[in-house]
């Protein structure tokens, strides 16, 4: 038997979505602007996009680039961040470099990268890679720095070599922090993916969006925004599931009580 409060908690995200769409619908009906379709019109346009083979190919190409950029960034950034967290010399070398790169919007580098590498997959993937790397490096660094010295000593006494300690103690101990960085990185990957496709327009979800805008198909524009948003929510939810499973050992033991009974 589910308590009313539990039902409410489950239904809350759905209710929030419905509420948002209702406000949109009302606003569009009041404003009666050509460039502001109603929510229902936008939702009706979604099957057209998803049913169109070319659009689907474009969206899949976007996702492929995103997965590629995100994957390579994670594989590169976690070891670097961990090394920085455990070695003063490595940190001293990379810290200033990262400090310079950090505040630069990665999309601002697009023109230069396009000039060098063209407008194809490599450029876009590289920009996604840059966008994802920094939060993952930063969180891996912080996580590795916080690992208790005595935990490493315990490992050393058992005969673990420095490399084994990095992989088998620092990595798992820093995992909750690393995954927090990866979650931020995942959202950033989606953002840089769309941005890169808006700048280097050739294919992808961002390109569909801007093409529709050029042709005045505003319902498609808004439908595409919904599709991209839904992609973000789904990816984040899937990632959160995986994250929660991997670091179950570090989560607080009990959830907040759902009711006062």
């Amino acid at each position: 038997m589910m308590l009313p409060a539990a039902v409410l908690k489950r239904a809350a995200p759905v209710l929030a979505c419905i509420g948002l769409l209702a406000i949109w619908q009302a606003a569009a009906l009041v404003l009666k602007n050509d460039s502001f379709p109603t929510a229902i019109e936008a939702i009706r346009a979604i099957p057209d996009i998803l049913g169109d083979k070319e659009s689907l190919v474009n969206i899949l190409a976007s996702l492929r680039r995103m997965a590629m950029g995100f994957g390579v960034a994670v594989l590169f950034s976690i070891p670097l961040g961990l090394l920085m967290g455990r070695s003063r010399a490595v940190a001293a070398f990379f810290n200033p470099l990262l400090m310079v790169i950090y505040p630069v919007p990665k999309a601002a580098l697009m023109p230069i990268i396009m000039l060098w590498l063209g407008v194809g997959d490599i450029t876009k993937t590289l920009v996604i890679f840059l966008g994802v790397s920094l939060p993952v490096i930063y969180h891996s660094f912080e996580g590795a720095k916080a690992v208790e010295e005595k935990m490493l000593w315990s490992g050393a006494a058992m005969g673990l070599s420095p490399l084994q300690r990095l992989v088998r103690i620092v990595l798992p101990a820093a995992l909750p922090e690393i995954l927090t960085g990866c979650r931020t990185g995942l959202v950033l990957a989606l953002i840089t993916m769309i941005t890169s496709e808006m700048i280097a327009r050739q294919s992808g979800a961002g390109n569909i969006l801007f093409n529709a805008l050029d042709m005045g198909q505003y319902d498609t524009v808004f439908a595409m925004i919904i599709v991209v948003g839904a992609m973000g929510i789904c990816l984040d939810a899937i990632f959160e599931r995986i994250r929660a499973r991997l670091v179950r050992w570090s989560e607080p033991q009990f959830d907040m009580p759902l009711s006062f009974s």
Binding site: M151, P172, W249
Partner: peptide
């Protein structure tokens, strides 16, 4: 500080 491995 015990220094146990919390993931184990």
């Amino acid at each position: 500080e015990f220094a146990l491995f919390p993931w184990k």
